[in-house]
Every structure is written in C-alpha cells, then in structure tokens.
Computed example of a mutant assay.
Amino acid sequence: MMDIHKILKQLPHRYPFLLVDRVLEIEKGVRIKALKNVTINEPFFTGHFPHRPVMPGVLMLEALAQAAALLSFDTLDSTPDDNTVYYFAGIDGARFKRPVEPGDQLTLEVQLDRMKAGIFKFKAQAKVGDELACEADLMCTMRKIA
C-alpha cells in the first residue's frame, strides 16, 4: 500500500493535477491497483459541465498514467528526481463506457504488458464499483531533462 505522502514523494504532480489518492495493491513488475476519489470540489467540474458534472475522459487516462508511473518506479526500484519526467508516448484503444461523477470512487487497475529500452506498455482500466468507466492501452517513457 501507498498513502498520499508516499505518492507525493514519487509523482511530481500536485493539485489540481495529482489524480491518485491511494495505492491499494502493487505487485512489482506486474500490476497496481489505486484509487482516485472524485469530489465536487474538482476544479474541472466548474466547466465540464455546469448542469451535469462529468469527469473528462482525458483525466481518467491521466489518472491511469499516474498509476502506471508508480508501477514503473516500483518495478525499477527508483524514485524519480527533478531531472526525470514520465511522459505519455501513446494511447491506443481508449474507450469510455460510463460517466464518472462527483461522489464516485475511481479504481485504477494497470497491468504492465512489457518494458523494453525505457518504453513501458500497459493495459489499463478505470472502474466505478464493478462498472468499467474507461479502458486503454498506454505507452509511457521516462526521460531526463536538462
């Protein structure tokens, strides 16, 4: 398990862009299960949409990528420094099956498919309860910046 304090040590994201609240399970080199608690206080709900707040799909994908980053760092036994950035390299097969609304708890499930030459490929799903909200194949990479 990983609480918010450990997550903040691993990810450079901060409010309003930190989208992982807790890690429930992590299997080095295999999978991660994490949570994002979705509240009405999220800044994106003001404009998306005022009459019916819905979490943007791209932010569900970002939450999955942040969980994937935590899995990658754990797999490599590394903590990123200020000169390391974890980027999206690709997203395939993204599908949105259910709206995510204030009060929902998004369960982020990411499996490492393979890693080679600094490229990580993942199968990812975000669920609310037992209902699939979003799924995609993610490709990410870590790069040193100057």
Results as ranks from 00 to 15, higher is better:
residue 123 K to H: 05
residue 74 D to Q: 12
residue 86 Y to P: 04
residue 108 L to W: 01
residue 110 V to I: 13
residue 78 S to Y: 04
residue 94 A to G: 06
residue 128 V to T: 11
residue 95 R to Q: 00
residue 87 Y to K: 13
residue 115 M to C: 11
residue 75 T to M: 13
residue 91 I to C: 09
residue 88 F to T: 04
residue 85 V to C: 09
residue 83 N to F: 12
residue 97 K to E: 06
residue 114 R to C: 09
residue 84 T to F: 05
residue 90 G to F: 12
residue 113 D to N: 13
residue 73 F to S: 06
residue 99 P to R: 05
residue 75 T to E: 10
residue 125 Q to R: 12
residue 111 Q to L: 10
residue 113 D to A: 06
residue 126 A to I: 00
residue 73 F to G: 09
residue 94 A to K: 00
residue 128 V to W: 03
residue 89 A to R: 05
residue 85 V to Y: 05
residue 93 G to M: 10
residue 73 F to N: 00
residue 118 G to K: 04
residue 81 D to H: 06
residue 126 A to Y: 11
residue 110 V to M: 13
residue 106 L to Q: 06
residue 116 K to Q: 15
residue 73 F to K: 08
residue 79 T to H: 09
residue 115 M to Y: 12
residue 80 P to W: 08
residue 76 L to W: 14
residue 118 G to M: 08
residue 117 A to W: 10
residue 95 R to N: 01
residue 71 L to K: 02
residue 78 S to Q: 12
residue 70 L to M: 06
residue 121 K to W: 12
residue 125 Q to S: 13
residue 77 D to E: 07
residue 119 I to P: 14
residue 89 A to P: 04
residue 84 T to I: 14
residue 118 G to S: 03
residue 74 D to L: 07
residue 76 L to C: 08
residue 71 L to R: 02
residue 85 V to A: 10
residue 124 A to V: 03
residue 84 T to S: 02
residue 96 F to G: 05
residue 89 A to I: 03
residue 75 T to Y: 09
residue 85 V to L: 05
residue 103 G to T: 12
residue 70 L to I: 09
residue 101 E to A: 10
residue 123 K to L: 10
residue 125 Q to W: 11
residue 99 P to H: 09
residue 113 D to R: 12
residue 84 T to W: 02
residue 86 Y to T: 00
residue 104 D to N: 03
residue 118 G to R: 01
residue 78 S to A: 10
residue 91 I to K: 04
residue 111 Q to F: 08
residue 71 L to T: 11
residue 118 G to A: 11
residue 120 F to E: 07
residue 99 P to E: 03
residue 81 D to A: 02
residue 106 L to C: 07
residue 74 D to S: 03
residue 126 A to Q: 01
residue 100 V to K: 02
residue 99 P to C: 06
residue 110 V to S: 07
residue 109 E to C: 14
residue 128 V to M: 09
residue 115 M to K: 15
residue 101 E to C: 05
residue 93 G to Q: 11
residue 102 P to Y: 08
residue 117 A to C: 14
residue 126 A to H: 02
residue 96 F to A: 03
residue 121 K to C: 09
residue 69 A to W: 01
residue 80 P to A: 15
